[in-house]
Design a protein around this nucleic acid. Structure first.
Length: 201
DNA sequence: CTGACGATTCACT
DNA sequence: GTGAATCGTCAGC
């Protein structure tokens, strides 16, 4: 169970990193409260040339400032006034690459996740979809910019590996406004995993 | 200052 | 399948 280091995040190929995040363990320990889950669905946002990214065209605002902060920090923002979405920032300072964590499989602290989400029992809706992941793991926009190398928030590798044929890819979800870039196969997910969002096929 | 809208989710028809 | 919830952000005036 090794914590991923800065070298993992600072590489230049965001698609490669997104692909490698599959099966890794996302851990939060806010105020010492431990929760974790295995990553089963992600989407890559490929910098200033990606119309679906908040940083398209080099747009730099107060909201997306952390996308430019450099590898190994969290970018968390509010969507639809309701949902906090969690991203991993990669590459280097001033190059706004990010990976949205869309779904995890709960591992530790399931009781805490149930309490945070107001659910009664564990089912596949607990951490399915980016809004639910953030709710279950306790992410909040106030944590944007938090280091992924810290003791409260990090991603670990327990050496579990999905087989090559278990990982599928598709266009990203909810980015129709991005024109041709909406069709890019930047979403990765585990085939048949019940926590993966979108309609099963 | 104002208005339009979003990397979503869930309840309801 | 359809539509409401809900509010910070951002472009434009």
């Amino acid at each position: 169970m090794e914590k991923l280091t800065i070298d993992f995040y600072k590489r230049t190929n965001v698609l490669q990193i997104a692909r490698e995040l599959m099966g890794k363990i996302l851990v939060t320990k806010w105020n010492g409260i431990f929760t974790s889950g295995r990553i089963v669905e992600v989407e890559a946002y490929n910098g200033i040339i990606d119309k679906a990214s908040h940083a398209f065209g080099g747009r730099r605002t107060n909201r997306n400032e952390m996308m430019y902060a450099g590898a190994g920090v969290a970018y968390i923002y509010l969507c639809y006034g309701i949902h906090h979405l969690f991203n991993v920032v990669t590459n280097s300072t001033d190059i706004p690459h990010a990976i949205l964590i869309r779904a995890v499989e709960p591992i530790a602290g399931i009781d805490v996740m149930l309490k945070r989400t107001g659910k009664k029992k564990l089912d596949n809706t607990l951490t399915k979809g980016p809004g639910n992941v953030s709710k279950a793991l306790g992410f909040h926009t106030s944590q944007t910019g938090h280091s992924l190398l810290s003791k409260e928030l990090f991603i670990a590798d327990d050496k579990y590996k999905y087989k090559k044929n278990e990982i599928a890819y598709s266009p990203r979800i909810g980015v129709d406004y991005a024109g041709v870039d909406a069709m890019l196969p930047y979403r990765f997910y585990i085939k048949g995993n019940p926590f993966v969002s979108g309609k099963p096929k």
